[in-house]
Write a protein that binds this DNA or RNA. Structure first.
Lengths: 184, 184
DNA sequence: ATCCTCTTGTAGCGATTGCTACATGATGTA
DNA sequence: TACATCATGTAGCAATCGCTACAAGAGGAT
């Protein structure tokens, strides 16, 4: 592997951590380069442009989120919607997982305005989430399984908004209600 | 009323429409001034700084959202959680309401990074939403009413994320599932 | 007529943005 | 040993950012 490729690897890893900490607004080329320990000039030698840097980091981020979710709920279980929703909700309001959701929120917001490369990335990741849910879902009979999966995804993603906008406590109360409903 | 105050009024109204169309990334002082039909110099004569401009616009935006929601579900009805969630969900995926949600998403994302003035605004608006829901909620007995309200808010806000990230169709399917569940 | 405050325009400051031109050493390869 | 490609640093470009200094007309109060 050429030095260039090795550096790409290293830089992407460092920048994933940096973006999780600081978000998209602290993501100028110079700031990214400093966080990765290289010069901004070299950042544009390793990658074509800023969009490619961010795309690579987002791909790494999606992989990292998947790994964490799979560790919590493996792909060989089948859960009814209320149970799956409650389990997934408990995960995303974990303080350790919150940075991922905060960054994910920024990505979708940027995608909503069509800003490249976020629009494309956001669609791919969201599709991945839907499949992740559907694979673990034992759907309620008579109702659209994709619809149930989308509903669970909305609930879980929306919890991030509540957490950020209204604080941790309302989010926790909502999860407790979900868990109570799932127990029946 | 002084010309200054009249201009403030006019500018805020024009900028609300502008931000709904173009989002926070097209909100430099010069762009805002052009959209409001004034010079950037005067924008900073009417308002103290950019943060005050945005804060005023966000307040107007929150009022406008409230009015639309109240028109759809007045404050003298009491609905069980599933029904209220389904009704509210149907509203927010309306193409006419979507610009509000898209902008709201950007605001919360910025608030997640503590960027003024969004952090404060986001908290206030989110609290307002929670109260709006709780007032119209006939809560399920034995479960925390605020928790149920927060869950509904998460579901509804999250639908916006699904709509933006995965497209209109999954969001519609999710709402149809909600409506089917509410019919029992 | 003389101030004084309100309103507005012109011009620009220093900082940051994404990105690039150019030169130079290092490392092979023929 | 000559040449070519890779790797990296220095310097800077044009554009945009939020914001401000300064001057000047407009209008009312004395």
């Amino acid at each position: 592997m050429s030095p260039r490729d090795e550096q790409r690897e290293r830089v992407v890893e460092a920048l994933t951590a940096h973006l999780l900490r600081t978000g998209l607004s602290q993501a100028s080329l110079r700031q990214l380069a400093a966080a990765a320990g290289v010069s901004d000039r070299m950042l544009l030698y390793y990658f074509a442009d800023k969009a490619e840097v961010l795309a690579q980091v987002m791909a790494r981020l999606a992989g990292s989120m998947s790994a964490r979710l799979n560790a919590a709920i493996p792909d060989d279980v089948r859960l009814p919607p209320a149970t799956l929703a409650a389990r997934a909700a408990r995960i995303v309001i974990d303080p350790e997982f919150l940075p991922y959701m905060r960054l994910w929120l920024e990505v979708v917001a940027a995608a909503g305005r069509g800003e490249p490369p976020f629009a494309q990335i956001s669609g791919q990741v969201m599709q991945g989430f839907l499949q992740w849910i559907e694979q673990r879902l034992s759907p309620v009979a008579g109702l659209s399984a994709p619809g149930q999966a989308a509903g669970i995804l909305a609930l879980v993603d929306g919890l991030t908004l509540v957490e950020i906008g209204a604080g941790h406590e309302p989010a926790v109360r909502a999860v407790e209600v979900l868990e109570a409903l799932a127990q029946d």
